[in-house]
Amino acid sequence: MRHLFRTVWLVVSLLVLAVSPVLAQGPAQQEAKPKAALPQAAPSAPEAAPKKADEAAVKKTPVTIDHDDSDPVGARLAYRIKELLARSALMAPTNRDEKKLVLVIKTKEEFPGRPNLCSIYAVSWLFSSREGSLKYFLASEAGIVDASSVDQTAEALLGRTDKLAATYGYLF
Rank of each mutant, 00 (worst) to 15 (best):
M1H: 03
R2Y: 08
L4E: 15
F5H: 12
L10Q: 13
L10T: 13
S20N: 03
P21W: 10
A24C: 00
Q25K: 04
Q29C: 00
K33Q: 14
K33A: 09
A36W: 13
P39I: 11
P39C: 10
Q40K: 15
A53I: 04
E55R: 11
A56T: 03
K60P: 04
T61P: 05
P62I: 06
V63Y: 05
I65T: 07
D68G: 02
D71K: 06
P72H: 06
A78F: 02
Y79L: 12
Y79C: 04
E83S: 04
L84C: 06
L85W: 01
L85A: 02
A92E: 14
P93M: 02
P93T: 06
D97S: 08
V102A: 03
V104C: 00
I105D: 11
K106M: 10
T107G: 04
P112S: 11
N116K: 04
N116P: 00
N116W: 00
A122I: 03
F127W: 15
S129I: 13
S129V: 15
S133E: 15
K135M: 15
E141M: 07
G143K: 02
G143T: 03
I144L: 12
V150D: 00
D151I: 01
E155K: 04
A156M: 00
R160Y: 09
L164Q: 07
A165I: 05
A165S: 14
A165Q: 00
L171P: 00
